[in-house]
Design a protein around this nucleic acid. Structure first.
Length: 118
DNA sequence: CTACTGACTGATC
DNA sequence: TGATCAGCCAGTA
């Protein structure tokens, strides 16, 4: 299973209403400094694949921010998807990571790691 | 193998 | 409040 597929698997495991920033995804994949590669992977996400890519966001200090680099989907669309799941944005389009960052159980991570070896 | 490209991040100015 | 810079990494040519 290559890096991209791992990113997809992990992203699929993010529960509604929760998010992960690129750096966190990379860290959970045991590659703490591959945040940029994570962005590349999500950019390659097949449209229509069962991957909630909108739950992966950028990070500014202790806040989450929707990335504007890729225009396959607009910032507004991604924001609407997250708001539909309960994420509240402030006037600057940011939201506190402390409140929305997903913190998976060790057991859940183990299950995901299991899929990686397949 | 080398070179280049990004949905990144944190530090610096 | 921005804008820039430099490390970092996987995928592609």
């Amino acid at each position: 299973m290559n890096f991209n597929e791992r990113v997809f698997v992990l992203t699929r495991a993010i529960p509604p209403g929760k998010v992960l920033n690129y750096g966190e995804v990379a860290r959970l994949l045991n590659k703490p400094q591959a945040s940029r590669a994570v962005g590349y992977a999500l950019n390659a996400t097949p449209d229509g694949a069962d991957v909630p890519w909108h739950r992966v966001v950028g990070k500014i200090g202790n806040y989450g921010r929707i990335s504007t680099r890729a225009l396959t989907y607009s910032v507004d669309q991604q924001r609407m998807l997250l708001e539909a799941e309960g994420v509240i944005f402030d006037e600057q389009g940011l939201f506190p990571l402390s409140q929305y960052l997903w913190e998976p159980d060790p057991a859940e991570l183990a299950a995901i790691a299991d899929l990686f070896s397949q």
